[in-house]
């Protein structure tokens, strides 16, 4: 059932500098995760994207980028599904 999702995750993980990937549903429950992405952070990731959507509720959901010195976390919501990609800065 989740074959297609696993394939997409594998594809994302194969991208250079990506070391983690997580997909969660609208309830903040983890659908899939791979690499450094922790299952327990699914709720927090969905909450961040929800809060970001409130900034401009009439526009499509924004991409949130959390950045540290060495790493990046990109969060994007699509309908009820939220995805997060953890990247090493190049």
């Amino acid at each position: 059932m989740e074959k297609e999702l696993d394939r997409v995750i594998e594809e994302i993980m194969a991208t250079p500098n990506v070391n983690g990937c997580l997909v969660a549903d609208h309830q903040g429950l983890c659908l899939a995760s791979k690499g450094t992405a922790h299952v327990d952070s699914a709720g927090m990731i969905v909450a961040i994207s929800e809060q970001a959507c409130k900034i401009q509720p009439n526009l499509k959901p924004p991409t949130v980028c959390l950045e540290t010195d060495t790493k990046q976390c990109l969060i994007q919501r699509h309908g009820t599904i939220t995805g997060a990609i953890f990247k090493q800065k190049s």
Binding site: Q27, G28, G43
Partner: peptide
């Protein structure tokens, strides 16, 4: 019912 379950678990 539509509250963020994952966030509560965390």
């Amino acid at each position: 019912d539509n509250c963020n379950t994952g966030h509560i678990l965390s």
